[in-house]
């Protein structure tokens, strides 16, 4: 069998991807201690957020003490808001891609991207699989701390929603992962045009932190109008960043339902396809400019 034939046959292709996936999983497991510690640490901000919002709600309650009924902020009760933050943690566990964009930019700068050019491996595909591996390992290691935290916080959650909501929630999580991947990959490709992208990445990080709904539910922005009927909430919802954190959490809490939900998922799919196309296009265009520095 010639080398080219073996690479082209579908079975061999599957085998190649399988081996890549396995290598990546093994590589990820080397630093499991580091990994576990990192996962636990990630829950610390939730603790401060619970206290912060409890304090905020107590003040809001104090102001309107005479009126009955439950206190809400932007349509969220206190428990619901805390559940929201916990759910964004899950969403971020799917959509965050630490070091992906900067890794691509670095490999362009230091020349290690050559390894993808000389080998019969598609770089974006390889990186995608390595992220899948990363996430698989992450969930395996992180399930325990996640389960523990969610169990401890179970009282914050509303009754478990129906299967349709679950299905939409799962879809939004998986799509959040793919969306996050192609978004960061596209940003990383900018490294072909600019050698130093770290400040650009910082700006992206900043925006994604605030506009993804990681810090507060985007519904809170609905009350802040820019001009006329348009509020900041409308603007942020038009941006795709809320798929990284807000969207899955809002789906689970049934803040987004029915037609709005279906439309949201379709738009997300559209963004995924657009960003995937963009990243491949940028990669091809970038290679034409690329001049392979470094050893």
């Amino acid at each position: 069998m010639s080398a080219t034939a073996s690479i082209d046959s579908p079975l061999a292709r599957v085998r190649t991807w399988w081996i890549i996936l396995r290598i990546c999983i093994e590589e990820r497991l080397i630093y499991r201690g580091d990994f576990m510690l990192g996962t636990l640490m990630r829950f610390l901000p939730i603790v401060t957020q619970i206290f912060l919002w409890t304090a905020v709600f107590s003040a809001v309650q104090g102001r309107g003490a005479s009126g009955g009924g439950t206190t809400t902020i932007a349509g969220y009760e206190k428990d619901e808001l805390i559940a929201y933050f916990l759910l964004t943690m899950v969403a971020r566990a799917f959509s965050s891609m630490p070091g992906l964009a900067s890794g691509i930019a670095r490999s362009i700068r230091d020349g290690s991207i050559k390894k993808y050019l000389t080998q019969p491996v598609d770089m974006i595909g390889f990186l995608f699989l390595s992220r899948v591996a990363h996430k698989l390992v992450y969930y395996t290691v992180a399930t325990l701390p996640f389960a523990l935290v969610f169990y401890l916080c179970r009282d914050f959650f509303p009754p478990i929603p129906g299967w349709q909501t679950w299905l939409a929630f799962l879809a939004s999580l998986v799509m959040g992962f793919v969306f996050g991947f192609f978004l960061e990959a596209s940003i990383g490709m900018i490294g072909f045009w600019f050698l130093e992208v770290s400040s650009l990445l910082f700006v992206y990080m900043l925006f994604s932190f605030f506009l993804s709904g990681h810090m507060f539910p985007i519904d809170m922005l609905d009350g802040v109008t820019i001009v006329g009927d348009t509020s900041w909430g409308d603007v942020v919802r038009a941006l795709p960043l809320h798929y990284l954190a807000y969207f899955p959490a809002a789906v689970y809490l049934e803040k987004i339902q029915g037609d709005e939900l279906v439309r949201g998922l379709w738009i997300e799919l559209g963004w995924i396809l657009a960003l995937a196309a963009l990243s491949y296009w940028a990669f091809r265009r970038g290679l034409r400019r690329y001049s392979a520095y470094g050893g």
Partner: peptide, 13 residues
């Protein structure tokens, strides 16, 4: 944004 919704952080603090 937070202070759009609340008068203070914690009641009576």
């Amino acid at each position: 944004l937070v202070f759009e919704y609340t008068p203070s952080i914690g009641q009576g603090t």
